[in-house]
Simulated assay, not measured.
Amino acid sequence: MSQRKYLSFVLLALSGLGINATYAATLQALTDEQLSETTGQALMSLTYTAPTDASNLESQRVNGAKNVGFYKLGLEAEVSINANIKKLQLGCGGMNGAGDCDIDIDNLSLSGLKLNSDGNVAMTNEERASSDAVLTNPFLEFAIKNPDKASTREIVGLRLSADKIVGLLSAGTNNNTPNGINTLSGFMQISGYGTATTAQSTFGLKNSEQVTSYADVNVLPPLCTSGCGSNQKYTAGNVNSDNKGIVIPSLKADFVINNAQVLGNRMKSANVLAVTDIPAIPLTETAGQLGVHMADCIKILGICAKQDTFIKLNTNLVNLEVVPHV
């Protein structure tokens, strides 16, 4: 608004002095020295990254293509946007086959990182609708195979992004039904974090869930003729009718994803490696019991007195590390 007022004032002043406005607006030639002292910024920019360029991330990637260059058309501006796409489908049919798409995403949303009253990132529809993502220098980039050969060059990829993005991007709806990214073609490098919640389970009810260990057995030492003493081998688990299993409680564990790579064509699912440290798991006497079968029968004066029994636990499982695929 201030620029318009200033321009109006200038034109009014020129008119009052009787100066020809057309003559005043005539472009003036600049010398090379004057041009070298002049700086400016274009609204649009176009850059090219050759396949052999050190900044070409595709050629630097392990097993990456060595003959792909990139043409980048950028907008030198800061853009605020709040976008919601109910269904995004790109590359349907074509050379990759009919009846499917290279990209198929439900409920794709881009909003700002607005914080709610609890100090957490706003996640409800109403909260996200009132905030904008901020894109600094957004751009459209084309991946060109054989860019230096007019007879064989072809577009093999497209990227819509920005030099810097502050916002929240989500896909799908949290309704306990798999949705969101239905199919995806291309390459992604993923880093992130989250919290996994395990379901309560019972250990020891399956034949495969057994533990073999050793115990010190002290039963009437003078009269015990076999199966007593140190390091007596036993198997605990579903080995007799005393077995009830040990209940493992539900717990939460934070996990991280470090530079996981996803690469493929029309992928329906992908394995992403995440690492987490499991917090201490309490096992008390109320958690249940495991059946125990001794390798050698405990004999008193040569008569087998005990070979099957049970154990209850009162301990904590600690320092467990899990490497899940999510």
Rank of each mutant, 00 (worst) to 15 (best):
L46I: 09
Q289I: 10
N240W: 04
I105N: 01
A122F: 04
G302S: 07
A280R: 01
E58C: 07
C297L: 02
T31L: 03
I300R: 05
I281W: 02
T136L: 11
A25N: 11
A215Q: 03
I190K: 09
T225L: 05
Y23L: 08
V166S: 15
L75M: 13
A25Y: 10
L283C: 04
N319D: 13
A29V: 14
S241I: 03
P249K: 04
S185T: 14
V156G: 05
P51G: 10
L110D: 08
E76C: 03
N67T: 05
A274M: 12
K145C: 03
P221I: 04
G40S: 11
T31G: 15
L273S: 11
T49E: 08
L140Y: 05
T124A: 09
I248S: 02
N176C: 05
G119Q: 06
R4S: 13
K306D: 02
Q3Y: 05
L263Q: 14
N20D: 12
I248G: 01
F139L: 09
S230Y: 13
D106I: 02
R128G: 08
D254E: 12
A129I: 03
T195W: 06
L313Q: 00
N238D: 04
A143L: 10
V156I: 14
P178E: 05
D308K: 00
L135R: 13
C304Q: 07
S130G: 07
E33P: 01
M188D: 10
G99R: 11
G186H: 07
A274W: 03
S213D: 14
E321H: 07
I81K: 15
S208Q: 07
A287I: 03
I85D: 00
G180H: 09
K306V: 12
I248C: 03
M267N: 01
K145W: 00
V156F: 08
L17I: 09
S45R: 10
V262M: 11
G192D: 12
E126F: 01
Y214H: 11
T309C: 10
V156D: 00
N259Y: 05
N82I: 06
A295Y: 13
N56H: 12
N218S: 10
Y23W: 06
L108G: 02
D100A: 13
Y6T: 07
E209I: 00
L57M: 14
L43I: 03
I19V: 12
G264F: 06
I311R: 01
K66E: 00
K268M: 09
V166D: 13
T235H: 06
S269M: 04
D118G: 10
D163E: 15
S241Y: 08
N107Y: 05
G245D: 02
L12Q: 14
T197H: 02
